[in-house]
Design a binder for these strands. Structure first.
Length: 726
RNA sequence: GCCCGGGUGGCGAAAUUGGUAGACGCGCGAGACUUAAAAUUUCGUGACCGUAAGGUUAUGUGGGUUCGAUUCCCACCCCGGGCACCA
C-alpha cells in the first residue's frame, strides 16, 4: 500500500532541503545564459502576505523554474519596500518604533513566502528602509540635485487646520481629515520636485522598444499625454490648441478658474478679427498647455456644452486654417513634475542642509547615509513640518561648506523612491562603494544591447502600470545618461496580474473583514494546492473572485497524480504518446503566454488519460511530473525521489515535444447547411477536397436539409468545416 | 468626469486568423463500493419542446457586416483598475 499524500510533511521536508543545497541561488560567474525574472517586492504590512502576492509570485516562480530547467542561470530575487505611511500610522497608534515594526513584519513575510516554496534567491534580500540601502537612494537624489533635476517649488498640499498636518490624498475622506473630520484646506508649501517632464519625450518614444502589453503602453502614453499643437495669441491671452485649423470657429476664450464666469474682458480672434469674450471655467486645466483655450463649439463637445450653457455664439460653418497660420508649433505634455517631498517620518531623509549663507548644500557623499534618528513622538512641526523638525539635535548641524550653524532638510522622500531603482540593487546587493557595479549590471541587464536590455521579465500589479513603472523608467534613464547603468530601459518585458477579490467580487480589505490569509489555506490544503488553485482559477491578467469551494479541484488532482505512481512500470510503448506530446507543447506555450489556467487544464486532461490506463510507463509519468514541477514543486520533488532519482527534479531538463507526433491522421469535419451544423464527417489527411465534397453531399442529413435543391455555394475550410449555402 | 480593462451554464472558466460555443474544474443528480458514512469510482448535467429520434434557442442589451460572429463595426447598460501624497 502506497503512502498517503501528506503535503505538510513533504513541503517542510523539501523546503529545508532546498535551503540547505541553495539550488535557487543565482551565480554571478556562470557560463550558462542568464535570465533575470522580477516581481514587485512587497510592502510588508502588519497583516501579512495576501492572496494577490501568492498569485503574482507563483506565476513568476513558474517562469523562473522553467528557465532553470531550460538551462539558464536565473536571478529571481525578493526584498522589502518597507518605507511608507501605514507603518508610520501604526507606530503613532502603538507608540513603537517604525523600524522595529518593520523588522517584525518582514520576518513574518519572509516566513510566509518561504512556506509557499518559491524559488527566490534569498541570499540577495534587500530592504529599502535599511540605511545600507537608502544610503544609495539618497546618493541618487544628490545626483538629481547636481544635474539640476531636483528643485524646490511652491505646491498646494492637503492641510488639516486642526491637526496641523499635511495629508495624503488617501487620508482625505469626502473632503475631510480622516482622523478628525475637519474640512481639508489647500495650503501652499515649498516642496522638493523631480523634473520628470524633462524626460517626457523619451519616456514616450522608448515605449516602442519594449515588450509591454498594449494596454500598459496605452496607459503610459495617455499619462504622458503628448500632443502637438500651436500657441496662438488672442491679444495678450496666449492659448494652446491641437486644432488650430478650427480657429475661424472660435467664439470665446476660456481660462482656468474655480467656477464658470465671464471675466468682463474681450479679446480679438486673430483669424476673424472679431472681439470674443474671455470666460473662466474649471474644465480648463491651469497646468496644461498655457492654461487657456479657444472655444470652438462647433468642433469640440465640451466647448459646445459650455457655449449652450452660457449662450455663447456657435458658428457652424467656417473656413479651415492651415496648422501654423496663426501661431508656432509646440509639443506639450500632460505629465507634471513629481512632488518628491513628504512631511513625514518613515521615509528616506532628503540629504541636504540649509545654510543661511550658502543656501541649499548637499550632504557630502562621505556623510551618507543621513540616518533617520529614533524619535519618541511623531507630532508634526508647528507649521506642518515633518516630525523630524522637532528633533533639534538632529536638525542642527554645521554647514559642510562654511562650518556655520545650519539646519537639515526635514522632508523625507515618498515611498516611490526606493522602488524606483531596487531592480538594480539586486544585481549587486551588498556593494558598499557603489549602488551596484557596472560589470554586474552589464551581466544581468544585457549591457551590450542597450535598446533591448533590462530585466528580462517583470511582472506586477495592474495598479502600478502608470506611476511606479514610469518613475522607475525615469530613474533608470537618468542613471543611464550618467553612464551608471547599461540600458536605457529598465525592463524588456512587463506583464500584469489581476487583483484577487473576495468571494462575491468585492475588494478584500481589512475594514470589510473579508481578507483571507494564505497561511490558513496552505495549512489546510498544502502550498502546492494553493499555488495550483491560484494558477487555475482564471485568466492571470484579470481580476477574479476567490472561491474556497473550488480549491478541492486542484487538491483532488494532486491526489490523483500521487496515486498514479503505484501504476508506474518500466516499458517502452507509450500508450498516450500523441497526448503526451500535445501536453508538452500546450504547457510549454501556455507558460510563456501566462495562460496558466489552460496549462493546468491540459495537465488535468493528461492525468485523466493516464488514470484510465492499466499501467503507466515511466516516461509518461516522468513527463507529467516534470511539466507539473514548476506549478507544484514539493509533490513533484517527492515523486521524483520516489522513482529512485538522486538529484532534484528542478534541475532536470524541460521536456521537449516531437512536432511529427502532435497530430492525428483523422479529423472530424463539421458540415453546415445555411450556417447551421447538420452533420459530421470523419476525413483523413490524405483525402482531396473533391473527394470530401462528394462524401459530404452524399450524407443523408445533408440530403434531408437540401430538400432536393442544388447548393448555391460550398465553402471548405480544410480540417474544420464545410459550409453549404442553398 | 477622464484614461485603461471586462461582461459566456447554478459557479470559476475554455474556444488558434471569423469556422462544431461551454474544454478543464467546482456544484448538482443518479448508480457502484460500504453495515453506514467519508474517500474513491461510473454515467448525466446551458435553457425550452419531445418517451425517443430529433428540433428550437443561447455568449450583457439593441442594431449591422458575413455562407458562418463570443470574435469585426455602431449605439447603449453594468462591473473592475488608475487619476499624480496608499503601496
Amino acid at each position: 500500500m502506497a503512502r498517503e499524500y501528506n503535503p505538510k510533511e513533504i513541503e517542510t521536508k523539501w523546503q529545508t532541503e532546498w535551503e540547505k543545497s541553495g539550488i535557487y541561488q543565482a551565480n554571478n560567474n556562470s557560463k550558462k545564459p542568464k535570465y533575470y525574472a522580477l516581481v514587485e517586492f512587497p510592502y510588508p504590512s502588519g497583516v501579512g502576505i495576501h492572496l494577490g502576492h501568492v498569485r503574482a509570485y507563483t506565476a513568476m516562480d513558474i517562469i523562473a523554474r522553467k528557465r532553470w530547467m531550460e538551462g539558464f542561470n536565473v536571478l529571481y530575487p525578493i526584498g522589502w519596500d518597507s518605507f511608507g505611511l501605514p507603518t508610520e500610522n501604526y507606530a503613532i497608534k502603538t507608540g513603537r518604533q517604525p523600524a522595529e515594526i518593520t523588522k517584525e513584519n518582514t520576518d513574518n513575510f519572509r516566513a510566509q513566502l518561504k512556506r509557499l516554496g518559491l524559488s527566490f534567491d534569498w541570499s540577495r534580500e534587500i530592504d529599502t528602509s535599511n540605511p545600507k540601502y537608502y544610503k544609495w537612494t539618497q546618493w541618487i537624489f544628490l545626483k538629481f540635485l547636481e544635474k539640476g533635476l531636483a528643485y524646490k517649488a511652491k505646491i498646494p498640499i492637503n492641510w488639516c487646520p486642526k491637526c496641523k498636518i499635511g495629508l495624503a490624498n488617501e487620508e482625505v475622506v469626502d473632503g475631510g481629515c480622516e482622523r478628525c473630520g475637519t474640512s481639508v484646506e489647500q495650503k501652499e508649501k515649498e516642496q522638493w520636485m523631480l523634473a520628470i517632464t524633462k524626460y517626457a519625450e523619451r519616456l514616450e518614444k522608448d515605449l516602442d522598444s519594449v515588450d509591454y502589453p498594449k494596454r500598459v503602453k496605452t496607459q503610459q502614453k495617455n499619462w504622458i499625454g503628448r500632443s502637438e499643437g500651436v500657441l496662438i495669441k488672442f491679444d495678450d491671452v496666449e492659448i494652446f490648441t491641437t486644432r488650430p485649423d478650427t480657429i475661424f470657429g472660435a467664439t470665446f476664450v476660456v481660462v482656468n478658474g474655480k467656477e464658470d464666469k465671464f471675466t468682463g474682458r474681450f479679446v480679438t480672434n486673430p483669424a476673424t478679427k472679431e472681439k470674443i469674450p474671455v470666460w473662466e471655467a474649471e474644465y480648463v486645466m491651469s497646468d496644461y498647455g498655457t492654461g487657456a483655450i479657444m472655444g470652438v463649439p462647433a468642433d469640440d463637445e465640451r466647448d459646445m456644452i459650455f457655449a449652450k450653457k452660457h449662450n455663447l455664439a456657435i458658428i457652424k460653418e467656417y473656413q479651415r486654417a492651415k496648422f501654423e497660420d496663426f501661431g508656432k508649433r509646440v509639443v506639450k505634455y500632460k505629465l507634471r513634475d513629481w512632488v518628491f517631498s513628504r512631511q513625514r517620518y518613515w521615509g528616506e531623509p532628503i540629504p541636504v542642509i540649509h545654510c543661511d549663507k550658502c543656501g541649499v548644500v548637499p550632504v557630502p557623499e562621505k556623510d551618507l547615509p543621513v540616518e533617520l534618528p529614533k524619535v519618541d513622538k511623531y507630532e508634526p512641526g508647528p507649521d506642518g513640518e515633518s516630525p523630524l523638525a522637532n528633533i533639534t539635535e538632529w536638525v542642527n548641524v554645521k554647514c559642510p561648506n562654511c562650518n556655520e550653524q545650519a539646519k537639515r532638510e526635514t522632508d523625507v522622500m515618498p515611498n516611490w523612491a526606493g522602488s524606483s531603482w531596487y531592480f538594480l540593487r539586486y544585481c549587486d546587493p551588498f556593494n558598499d562603494r557603489e549602488f551596484a557595479s557596472l560589470d554586474k549590471l552589464k551581466y544581468w541587464l544585457d549591457g551590450d544591447l542597450p535598446r533591448h536590455g533590462g530585466v528580462d521579465w517583470y511582472n506586477g500589479g495592474m495598479e502600478h502600470t502608470v506611476l511606479h513603472l514610469l518613475y522607475s523608467r525615469f530613474w533608470n534613464k537618468f542613471l543611464y545618461d550618467l553612464k551608471l547603468v547599461p540600458t536605457s530601459e529598465p525592463y524588456k518585458k512587463r506583464t500584469s496580474h489581476g487583483l484577487i477579490l473576495a468571494e462575491g467580487g468585492e475588494k478584500m480589505s481589512k475594514s470589510k473583514g473579508n481578507v483571507i490569509n494564505p497561511d490558513t489555506i496552505a495549512e489546510r490544503f498544502g502550498a502546492d494546492t494553493l499555488r495550483l488553485y491560484e494558477m487555475f482559477m482564471g485568466p492571470f491578467e484579470q481580476a477574479i473572485a476567490w472561491s474556497e469551494d473550488a480549491l478541492v479541484g486542484p487538491r483532488r488532482f494532486l491526489e490523483k497524480v500521487w496515486r498514479l505512481q503505484s501504476k508506474v512500470s518500466k516499458g517502452l510503448t507509450l500508450k498516450s504518446e500523441t497526448l503526451m506530446h500535445q501536453t508538452i507543447k500546450k504547457v510549454s506555450d501556455d507558460i510563456e503566454s501566462m495562460g496558466f489556467n489552460t496549462a493546468v487544464s491540459a495537465l488535468m486532461i493528461y492525468v485523466n488519460a493516464l488514470d484510465k490506463q492499466k499501467e503507466i510507463f515511466q516516461k509518461e509519468f516522468e513527463t507529467l511530473i516534470l511539466l507539473l514541477a514548476p506549478f507544484a514543486p514539493h509533490i513533484t520533488e517527492e515523486l521524483w525521489a520516489s522513482l529512485g532519482h538522486k538529484d532534484s527534479i528542478h534541475v532536470q531538463s524541460w521536456p521537449t515535444y516531437d512536432l511529427k507526433k502532435l497530430v492525428k491522421d483523422e479529423v472530424n469535419l463539421a458540415v453546415q447547411v445555411d450556417g447551421k451544423v447538420r452533420a459530421n464527417l470523419l476525413v483523413t489527411r490524405s483525402q482531396s477536397e473533391e473527394e470530401i465534397r462528394i462524401n459530404v453531399l452524399a450524407l443523408s442529413e445533408v440530403q434531408k436539409w437540401l430538400g432536393g435543391k442544388n447548393p448555391k455555394k460550398i465553402i471548405m475550410i480544410p480540417g474544420k468545416i464545410v459550409s453549404i449555402v442553398t
